[in-house]
Amino acid sequence: MKIADIRAKTPDQLDDELAALKKEQFNLRFQKATGQLEKTARVKQVRRDIARIKTVAAETAAKKA
């Protein structure tokens, strides 16, 4: 996910995307624990996408304040 795509979204869309990524992160951790994880690189990608969304959300909150 590109940072420009994230910045183009509304705060509600960001919240929805963040919830979906956290759910995916949980599922990936569960797959890793049970030995069923095939795409190990996806764990890192999801973690970074979560960080990007949180960063953009914090920036927009700082601009409003």
Rank of each mutant, 00 (worst) to 15 (best):
M1G: 15
M1H: 14
K2S: 15
K2P: 04
K2R: 15
K2C: 13
I3F: 07
A4Q: 13
A4M: 11
I6K: 11
I6C: 11
I6L: 13
R7I: 13
R7N: 06
A8L: 15
A8H: 13
K9Q: 15
T10K: 15
T10R: 15
D12Y: 14
D12C: 13
Q13S: 14
L14C: 12
L14W: 09
L14S: 10
D15Q: 14
D15E: 15
D15W: 09
E17K: 11
E17L: 14
E17H: 12
L18A: 08
L18G: 05
A19K: 14
A20F: 11
A20C: 09
L21R: 12
K22C: 03
K23G: 10
E24F: 03
E24D: 10
F26C: 03
L28Y: 01
L28F: 00
R29C: 09
R29T: 12
F30C: 03
Q31T: 00
Q31P: 00
Q31A: 07
Q31N: 04
K32S: 05
K32C: 02
A33R: 00
A33F: 02
T34L: 02
T34Y: 01
T34M: 02
G35V: 00
Q36I: 00
K39F: 06
K39H: 10
T40K: 08
T40P: 03
T40Q: 08
R42M: 07
V43G: 05
V43K: 04
V43F: 07
V43C: 05
K44C: 06
K44L: 11
K44G: 09
K44T: 10
Q45K: 13
V46T: 07
V46Y: 04
R47Q: 09
R47S: 06
R48D: 10
R48W: 07
D49M: 11
D49N: 14
R52H: 11
I53Q: 06
I53Y: 05
I53E: 07
V56G: 03
V56E: 08
V56N: 03
A57K: 09
A58H: 09
T60A: 02
T60G: 01
T60C: 02
A61H: 01
A61T: 01
A62L: 04
A62P: 00
A62Y: 04
A62R: 05
K63E: 02
A65L: 03
A65D: 03
